[in-house]
Design a protein around this nucleic acid. Structure first.
Length: 463
DNA sequence: GGAACTCGCCAC
DNA sequence: AAACGTGGCGAGTTCC
């Protein structure tokens, strides 16, 4: 580790400790109310489930043993041994999986109740329970660890502030609805846009990727959606179906590929979005509608993709093109980087951290990106914390989520804070670290005064 | 009765 | 050649 790397950890710990001590306000009354609602729903839905024929079968299969609808081993045994259904997937230890996708693939409607109860219990017993357990004088004080992840990023615990629900609107409203700024203050969240993609580009310097990152008119995910779905023109804003196609390309192809996944797994993910039947054919009855009310299934069939086998071949070609034609320089960097590690037994990040020991190929390619990306956030946080203390802001840094910072802002200071954030993240940081050869982008989301974190909204910077 | 394990699922 | 990276946490279960 270089001295620079050591300093990052040292000053990082001090800055994060200040955020930990500051804490995040929790509306415990709201949390209690939601806990009651969840408990009521859980009890009702459990009752409904217990009365189904499916559940009565399960009970009788157990003999004298008592049913526990939360027990995955029990459910697995019933589904795959008693009923002899074919597991969609096996667990690490070789048992039939009972995860969401596996249960959905069985097409048993009673299992949807079970899945919904699972979600409600997670909200109550994981997230709300953490608030009740960890709140002190109206605040939670999440810890940020710099000594745990092998990649030299951070983790958070007691409570973990880095995995609060956000994608599911219902879960988001309950959990983030509990979290507030101090009275008469407002939450501000700033986050780097596409940070890991940009940091990866600093390592491999692929010209096509550099163009995607520098030219705001080009869009990698839209381009990939067009290629995957045989669409000439894709305007994500206009048609909901098109937006979903872009999302699916991003979340089920591009990012998994960057993490080291391969096309056969991508097919699984994409099929879910566009409802490719689990058997062999595309379904017309549901799925996404394109222009002229053409279903995605029909559209794909017109382009020669009529079965899972076709789609698999198609995605293999797409993957091949992705690495060999679209990002060949990125691909060559991966190979060089991996070879160099095999020769040396270690590699160094841009930020001065050395990773050594036994690692797999994907690890060696991912760690330097994941680590250095977080260090951009940490450097910015240290600098903003320093200014905050120096200038005696009433505004406080209260949290951090890998590529974002949460502030509890005094409204009169908002404009001033935004100006500092913008300068530190997009000017001072690239100036300090010459290896950053791409522009950095930062997005800003604010909540109105006294509103919870559930209501954050993007703002355009006018500073 | 607690430690260690498996499994599932939330985030980036 | 190989096949999704990093975490935390809860419930159920098994082991000692």
């Amino acid at each position: 580790m270089t001295k620079e790397a050591y300093k990052l950890l040292h000053y990082g710990v001090l800055a994060l400790a200040r955020a930990e001590r500051q804490g995040i306000r929790v509306d415990l009354d709201f949390a209690r109310e939601k806990e009651k609602e969840l408990t009521k729903k859980i009890e009702e839905e459990t009752d409904t489930f217990m009365q189904t024929r499916f559940c009565r079968q399960w009970v009788s299969s157990l003999g004298s043993k008592k049913i526990n609808i939360n027990s995955d081993p029990q459910l697995s045994t019933f589904l795959y041994k008693t009923k002899n259904l074919k597991p969609h997937k096996l667990t690490a230890s070789g048992q039939g999986s009972t995860e969401e996708a596996a249960l959905e693939s069985l097409n048993i409607k009673e299992l949807n109740i079970l899945l919904h109860v699972r979600k409600l219990k997670k909200l109550r017993d994981t997230y709300l329970a953490q608030f009740f357990r960890e709140t002190v004088d109206g605040c939670v004080h999440p810890f940020y660890n710099l000594h745990i992840p092998v990649t030299y990023r951070s983790s958070s615990d007691q409570p973990n502030f880095q995995n609060m629900p956000i994608r599911d609107p219902y879960a988001k409203a309950i959990i983030r609805g509990c979290l507030h700024a101090r009275p008469k203050h407002q939450l501000l969240e700033i986050d780097f846009g596409n940070l890991e993609v940009r940091i990866a580009a600093c390592y491999h310097k692929d010209p096509t990727m550099l163009k995607y990152v520098k030219d705001s008119k080009s869009n990698m995910h839209t381009d990939m959606a067009k290629q995957i779905y045989f669409i000439k023109k894709l305007e994500p804003e206009k048609i909901a179906g098109h937006h979903i196609l872009r999302q699916s390309a991003k979340n089920s192809f591009v990012f998994p590929q960057f993490y080291g996944d391969y096309y056969a797994n991508n097919v699984e993910g994409l099929s879910k979005w566009i409802k490719l039947s689990t058997r062999t054919r595309w379904k017309d009855s549901d799925g996404i509608e394109l222009d002229n009310h053409v279903h995605i299934g029909e559209h794909m069939r017109k382009n020669g993709i009529s079965s899972n086998r076709n789609f698999l071949d198609h995605m293999r070609d797409i993957e091949d093109h992705f690495w060999k034609e679209r990002f060949p320089v990125y691909n060559q960097w991966k190979e060089r980087w991996w070879k160099k590690y095999q020769k040396n037994g270690y590699f160094d990040m841009f930020t001065g951290f050395r990773c050594s020991g036994v690692m797999g190929r994907n690890d060696v390619i991912n760690y330097p990106v994941q680590g250095a990306a977080f260090h951009c956030l940490l450097w910015s946080l240290i600098e903003l914390d320093r200014i905050m203390v120096r200038d005696k802001w009433d505004t406080k840094i209260i949290g951090q989520i890998h590529d974002s910072i949460l502030f509890d802002v005094r409204p009169e200071e908002l404009e001033m804070v935004l100006a500092h954030v913008k300068r530190v993240t997009t000017i001072d940081l690239p100036n300090a670290w010459k290896w950053i050869i791409v522009p950095l982008e930062v997005d800003y989301e604010i909540c109105k005064i006294d509103q919870s974190w559930n209501y954050k909204e993007k703002i355009e910077m006018v500073v």
